[in-house]
């Protein structure tokens, strides 16, 4: 369905995307997981034809993506790209006509996508009267309108309340099941883990790992993540983190504000020696959390930093 080969995009001296390649099959939901600034949006803008790559190629259904073939893609941008002074129906009708829908077919599709995103009752209300979650859902509806072969969703749940978020995730999950290829970018590992058949982990413009969530997590073996919440001076915290790095079976240590995350095969058994070392270093431990291996831990393992950095 979608073949992305060696995409490169530079902005001046900065290389935002550096040789990204992946493929998405029909009916597959592919997650592009990475922190803010990793190059996710630049990558999808090149796939959607909004940015010209400095190198590399995008092919959809075995052909380059040009002109009218852009109708094969439905783009749901990260920001709400709707006219706030128009109703959802008016927005959908405008963007639908641009996609060459018209007449009864357009009206039918507008009704269908409003149903999919749960906005049938509010379709005639202006977008600026919607809640944040409803705007997100209307934003998705526009991307679905013309029944694209590939739907690209760029962080569609950012800033959304839990209820709307769940609704959006359910809708996306249903789309993949209906045979549509979906490219989903996010920095929420739980979304990638829940929705995606395969995940590509992107950092600093490079695709550093790819596979099913299970395959990626399996790379970590039995490693768990132990997260400490601290009450300490920065110097003392830093010194303690150095001590942790020297301890046996520690794969990675990452500091973020008043928190330190440690990847270790010892799991909960690591807590006791770590707290002892903290006491000796003058570091107060305010809380501890142990999590089983997940995509966040994979990212930490691969990059030494957290997804939300």
């Amino acid at each position: 369905m979608l073949e992305v080969d060696g995409l490169v995009r530079r902005f001046g001296e900065h290389t935002a995307v550096d040789g990204v390649s992946f493929r998405i099959a029909q009916g597959e939901t592919y997650g592009l997981l990475g922190p803010n600034g990793a190059g996710k949006t630049t990558t999808i803008n090149m796939i959607a034809g909004l940015l010209t790559p400095d190198a590399g190629e995008v092919r959809l259904l075995d052909e380059p993506l040009t002109g009218d073939r852009k109708s094969l893609i439905g783009l749901v941008p990260q920001d709400i790209a709707l006219y706030p002074d128009l109703s959802a129906v008016e927005n959908l009708e405008f963007f639908g006509r641009l996609q060459n829908l018209s007449g009864p077919r357009l009206k039918q599709r507008v009704a269908e996508v409003l149903e999919v995103v749960g906005l049938t009752d509010r379709g005639k209300d202006h977008i600026d009267t919607y809640s944040g979650g409803m705007k997100r859902r209307a934003n998705i509806a526009v991307g679905l309108l013309h029944e694209p072969a590939l739907l690209i969703l760029d962080e569609p749940t950012v800033g959304v309340d839990p209820q709307s978020r769940n609704s959006i995730l359910e809708s996306v999950s249903a789309l993949g099941g209906a045979g549509m290829a979906v490219l989903y970018t996010t920095h929420y590992m739980e979304e990638a883990q829940r929705l995606c058949d395969r995940v590509g982990i992107i950092d600093a413009g490079r695709l550093i790992a790819e596979g099913t969530p299970e395959e990626l997590v399996a790379q970590l073996g039995e490693q768990a993540t132990v997260r400490f919440r601290l009450n300490a001076a920065p110097d003392a915290q830093r010194a303690w983190a150095e001590v942790l790095r020297t301890m046996p079976d520690v794969a990675a240590v990452q500091e973020s504000g008043d928190r330190v995350s440690v990847m270790t095969t010892h799991g909960p058994a690591f807590i006791a020696p770590a707290v002892t070392a903290a006491r000796e270093a003058g570091v107060g431990v305010a809380g501890v959390e142990v999590t089983e291996p997940d995509l966040e831990a994979v990212f930490l393992h691969l990059t030494g930093k957290a997804l939300r950095d």
Binding site: G49, L50, D68, R69, L82, Y83, F95
Partner: peptide, 13 residues
């Protein structure tokens, strides 16, 4: 700025 231009250009326009 509002993103609607990119959405228009993402179509066959």
């Amino acid at each position: 700025r509002e993103g609607t231009l990119q959405r228009i250009l993402a179509g066959p326009v």
